[in-house]
Simulated scan of single mutants.
Amino acid sequence: MTRSIHPDTDLGTVHLKVAELDRSIRFYEEIIGLQLISREGETARLGAGGPAALLQLEQLSEGAVPAPRRRTGLYHFAILVPTREALGLAVRNFLQRRVPIGQGDHLVSEAIYLNDPDDNGIEVYADRPRENWTYTPQGEVAMATDPVDIEGLLALAGDKPWTGLPAGTVMGHVHLHVRDLQEAKRFYVDMLGFDIAANYGGQALFVSAGGYHHHVGLNTWAGVGAPPPPANAPGLIFFTVRLPDTAELARILTAVGEQGIPSEQFEDGYLVADPSSNRVLLTVRA
């Protein structure tokens, strides 16, 4: 039986390809509320206070093409704000700037959805206290997609100034298109060790560490057997899974190697690819 991934595992920086870096920086600063940490050439790092980046943007060379609808890759990345008031302030900013948004009250969280200029999906959300979550008879986290109390969020925001995303904002989860759900399960659950938090109709699977509602979402909504996007299309380069210590990293790399999956040393971690060509950087949290 596969050992569960360490319960203190979480997510770090999401790396994205974009068509126009200046345009994307403006969007993520003015609309989402991230702060530019650094820019070197065609690469920019953005965060929510402090040196840690939530997002790294890399500009594509000339000849970028839109990502097709039928493809694997990013469905959305999800920025977790620390309070419901912070979510209300973000919602007010979206509405004032007339940004099209979607919404979902997932029982465990309240979420707002939007897209960046390259159609990369974004979720900004606030969790409800874990002690208020409920569970199915099968032991899975109970989730739904109900209307969000937008008026209540705006009331919490009141006339307080919006100064961007507050300290304490983190990368909460990443949701991916995959070509086959069982294949993805073997990679993320049977090999990496994430636990199944919820399973929806054979089309979506939510997996996590430490009982969270999900750190990684997996779906086949872009079509079973969908191919990877073109290399010159905007989208996900890789996302970061942060492990608490080197022993846990070594254990997972051993499991990866035993399955014949190559790993590539990259900066302070190791890159591996799931069967749908979605890449994951496994690293130790600083």
Results as ranks from 00 to 15, higher is better:
residue 189 V to C: 14
residue 110 E to Y: 11
residue 262 P to R: 06
residue 97 R to L: 15
residue 178 V to N: 10
residue 75 Y to T: 02
residue 217 G to T: 00
residue 237 I to C: 01
residue 65 V to A: 03
residue 272 V to E: 12
residue 186 R to G: 07
residue 125 Y to L: 06
residue 94 F to L: 13
residue 239 F to I: 08
residue 55 L to R: 10
residue 234 P to K: 07
residue 213 H to F: 12
residue 67 A to I: 10
residue 30 E to Q: 15
residue 154 L to T: 08
residue 226 A to H: 07
residue 23 R to I: 01
residue 125 Y to F: 11
residue 43 T to D: 00
residue 56 Q to R: 09
residue 133 W to G: 03
residue 253 L to F: 05
residue 18 V to H: 03
residue 153 L to E: 07
residue 178 V to I: 11
residue 152 G to A: 05
residue 29 E to N: 14
residue 181 L to K: 11
residue 199 N to R: 11
residue 1 M to T: 12
residue 243 L to G: 08
residue 18 V to C: 09
residue 180 D to H: 14
residue 34 L to Q: 10
residue 280 V to N: 13
residue 176 L to K: 03
residue 274 D to M: 10
residue 230 P to S: 03
residue 178 V to S: 03
residue 222 A to Y: 07
residue 21 L to K: 04
residue 227 P to G: 08
residue 249 L to Q: 09
residue 150 I to R: 04
residue 155 A to T: 12
residue 275 P to H: 06
residue 189 V to G: 11
residue 148 V to T: 08
residue 260 G to I: 09
residue 99 V to A: 05
residue 202 G to H: 01
residue 73 G to F: 04
residue 191 M to K: 11
residue 67 A to R: 15
residue 249 L to H: 02
residue 137 P to T: 09
residue 185 K to A: 01
residue 91 V to C: 04
residue 210 G to N: 10
residue 261 I to Q: 00
residue 173 H to M: 07
residue 160 K to D: 12
residue 199 N to S: 12
residue 37 I to D: 01
